[in-house]
Amino acid sequence: MSEGKPNPNQELFQKQYDEFQETLEALNNKIGQLQGDIEEHNIVLKTITTAPKDRKCFHMIGGVLIEKTAGEVEPTLKTNVTKMNDAVENLKNEIQNTHKQFEDWKKKTGVKIVSANE
């Protein structure tokens, strides 16, 4: 991927490039996963709020199924959503930082990406 004649740094550049790509992909995957979870939580919350507050409702916590009521589970789910939203924000910042580092690295090393396709 690096430009020019055989370069002693070529291998190093390739490795660094791969690392950047891997980090970005991992972060993106994590965000997608969390957003899916958030959506799931929101759907469940919508369902749970329409049910009577004393409806029997189980919550699995760390592999243990606990009997509760719909009214009790609701606040727990709400906190979870808030926490996950924060996590997504953090990950988005991290992606931006990595992008910046990647651009700086490209400038510093003079590496040009010849093909953007895999």
Binding site: D37, V44, F58, H59, M60, L77
Partner: peptide
């Protein structure tokens, strides 16, 4: 009892 998702099962 139905699994609603998000580790929640309701009657």
């Amino acid at each position: 009892y139905l699994w609603l998702g998000a580790d929640v099962m309701m009657e």
